[in-house]
Every structure is written in structure tokens, then in C-alpha cells.
Computed example of a mutant assay.
Amino acid sequence: MSVPDHLAIAKSFAAAPERWPVTPRFDPVERWYHHLAVADDYEVWVLTWLPGQQTEIHDHGGSAGAFHVFSGTLNEDTIATGGPGGPRVTSRDLGEGAGRRFGAHHIHRIVNRGTDPAISIHVYGPALTRMTKYRLAPEGLEVLTVERAGAEW
């Protein structure tokens, strides 16, 4: 059985916004998100980001995936653990049309540090069942919460 190319799926959804079941909205209080599709081995979400909106540092509960920036610019802070000196944070800007794949053990935060709203398409395989949220502490990553699909989102 082959593993789907999550980034290719995200790009295909980005290429056809007229087929999305909803029109993206922007919420000044919190990020807006909506399920676009669910298949046997992946799911697709659309997220919107006003300037300053961000996720907490989190993982995807063992799911791999990808995200594609449909419009605007997002910044991803990737957290690497296990090396000397505690966690390392690497930042990268991803502009419209950019995307990236990530593995099942990826820990990151996504931020709209720009001045314009952004929209992104996210694909996870298998579908998300949980996400762990963390905070950076002097001794490493500390677990804040473990959220379950269907309960917290």
C-alpha cells in the first residue's frame, strides 16, 4: 500500500477553491478552520490566519502531513529535541504557493507574522485523533495539554 503525497493533495485542493464546501472566513478572536475532505487514509482542512494569529507549539498525535499556503505568508517554527542544549527552534517563512511535508513526529508552531491575512490547506494522514500542545521551558518541552479530535476540535 502506498502512502499518499500529502503536499500534492494540499496543492490539488488549493488549485480548486471553487470546490471547497465553504468560503473561508476570518475571525478576529481565534483562527478559523473547516474540514474540506476526509478519505480512508487522510483528511484535509482549510485554516485562516489574521496577522498575529498562531498555533501553540504542537504535534499531530502520530499523523504525518503537509500544509500549503494558499494566500498570504506564514512562518513556521520547527522544534527539534534530543540534541545538546535543549530544544532548538528553526524558523522559516512560507509565502503564497509554498508548502512543506512533515513526518509523524514533527513538532511546530505556525504564526502569521505578516500584515496581511493568510489561508492555508493542511492534510494529515491518517486523520488526526489527538494533538499534544507544549511550551518551551528551560529544561525542554513541557506538555500543556493533549487534545482529542471530536472533543476539543
Rank of each mutant, 00 (worst) to 15 (best):
W49D: 00
A8W: 09
A64M: 08
A98W: 02
L136W: 13
H105N: 13
A98L: 01
R101D: 13
Q53W: 03
L47I: 14
P17R: 07
V38Q: 13
E147K: 15
V143W: 07
M1K: 13
S12H: 07
V143A: 10
H122M: 05
L47H: 06
R19G: 09
R88A: 14
H122Q: 08
H35E: 15
S2V: 11
Y42Q: 10
V3T: 15
R109P: 01
G150T: 12
I107P: 03
T55C: 06
E43T: 03
E43P: 09
G95V: 04
P28H: 02
T81S: 10
L47G: 02
W49V: 01
T90L: 07
P4V: 07
H60G: 07
L136E: 04
R88H: 12
S71G: 09
V46R: 00
T23A: 11
G140L: 06
V146R: 13
W153I: 11
N112K: 00
L128Q: 05
G52Y: 00
T115Q: 14
G61P: 10
P21A: 09
G61W: 07
Y42E: 06
T129P: 11
A64E: 15
I121T: 09
E43W: 06
V29F: 08
F70Q: 06
H68M: 12
R100S: 08
P17E: 02
A8V: 05
D41P: 11
H58F: 03
G97I: 07
V3L: 12
Y33L: 11
L144E: 15
V29Y: 07
F102H: 10
A149G: 03
H68G: 08
N112G: 00
A64R: 14
G61R: 04
R130H: 15
V22D: 05
V38T: 15
R25H: 01
Y124D: 04
T81H: 08
L128V: 05
I110Q: 04
I9Q: 02
Y134L: 08
E147R: 13
A16R: 14
T132G: 06
Y33D: 12
D5A: 08
A15L: 11
R88M: 11
L141C: 11
T48W: 01
V123P: 06
T129Y: 15
